[in-house]
């Protein structure tokens, strides 16, 4: 065979390749670590701006202050009504979303014939694709008047409307993670149960759900994380009153909505501006914790 490769030439080429190889490997490594860097950067920048608030407002006043009057004189920066707003809306959403999501996941993953399964899944994925501002808009023109009429309220802009919409928006996350959890249950469990003469429902109820419990929990938590962080839809349909809600029929203002609604008017470098970042810290910490625990639950299982 003809010697096409001249050894010396090959060696130079290999040396050249080694240099570019070195550079690209470093680049890949840096990109890999970039996500870590970004998470840290996010936290650092929230802290950097948020902590300035505590030069003028004590941490205690911020955390348990009952009044959020950012532009009164003197301003009050109590995050409690906003925190409670977020929690009420989240609680409502979770109460609605968990049974519904669990039922939907069981139905799609376990009961629907295999040939139809993908269509149902596509339906749920379609929901994930709709931008939250669109859902907020649709909620505003359909759900809000509906809630008002059904419960004879003065306004439909309530915690309930927000919870309903957010439960709906959390569905793709909850359904897909619970479905995965069911799929991860070993086949032998199911077969063992059938072999004992249990019906399909008994098997689901007594075997599958307990076995998949950690995954279900993780799904619920991640769904909750999604709900707490949701901004646009919730801002458009919960009424945005910074008061401590007493029922699901009261309006509420969440932390996310507060940031979104007020940052535009807050003067850079003012206490108000810093306070909005401080809310960001609270939000970040809550979702960080939720995600960390959910991830831990998901991975411990393996």
């Amino acid at each position: 065979m003809l010697r096409i490769f001249k050894t010396r030439e090959t060696i130079t080429k290999i040396q050249q390749r080694q240099i570019s190889e070195f550079i690209i490997e470093k680049l890949i490594f840096l990109s890999g670590l970039a996500s870590v860097l970004f998470v840290i950067l996010i936290f650092v920048f929230l802290l950097k701006e948020g902590v300035s608030l505590f030069k003028t407002v004590s941490l205690k006043d911020f955390l348990i202050g009952k009044f959020w009057y950012p532009i009164s004189d003197p301003p009050r920066f109590g995050v409690l009504p906003l925190l409670m707003g977020s929690l009420w809306v989240t609680l409502g959403a979770v109460l609605i979303a968990v049974p519904l999501g669990l039922g939907c996941a069981i139905f799609i993953g376990q009961i629907v014939p295999r040939s139809l399964r993908d269509y149902f899944k596509a339906g749920v994925e379609l929901l994930a694709a709709i931008p939250s501002v669109v859902l907020g808009f649709v909620g505003l023109v359909t759900l809000v008047p509906l809630v008002r009429h059904l419960f004879h309220l003065r306004s439909g802009l309530t915690v309930l409307s927000g919870s309903l919409m957010l439960a709906f928006m959390a569905m793709p996350t909850i359904v897909s993670i619970i479905e995965d959890a069911f799929n991860a249950v070993p086949k032998s469990y199911r077969e063992g149960s059938f072999a004992l003469g249990a019906t399909q429902w008994q098997t689901i109820y007594r075997v599958l759900i307990p076995a998949a419990a950690p995954g279900i929990l993780a799904g619920v938590m991640l769904g909750m994380g999604r709900v707490i962080g949701e901004t646009m839809a919730v801002m458009m349909i919960t009424g945005n009153a910074a008061i401590l809600p007493k029922s699901f029929f009261d309006p509420a203002r969440t932390m996310t909505a507060t940031i979104a609604a007020e940052m535009g008017e807050a003067v850079r470098g003012s206490s108000h501006y810093f306070a909005l970042f401080a809310i960001g810290i609270v939000l970040f910490l809550i979702t960080f914790l939720v995600n960390l625990v959910a991830d831990f639950v998901l991975h411990r299982k393996k």
Binding site: E230, T256, A260, F277, F284, N291, D295
Partner: peptide, 23 residues
């Protein structure tokens, strides 16, 4: 790194807004 990515995915979109504003 994987945990960081999961967390990045979970950061509320409005917090990204704050971060973008700050940085």
């Amino acid at each position: 790194v994987e945990v960081a990515i999961v967390n990045l995915a979970g950061v509320p979109s409005i917090v990204f807004g704050l971060f973008g504003l700050g940085l």
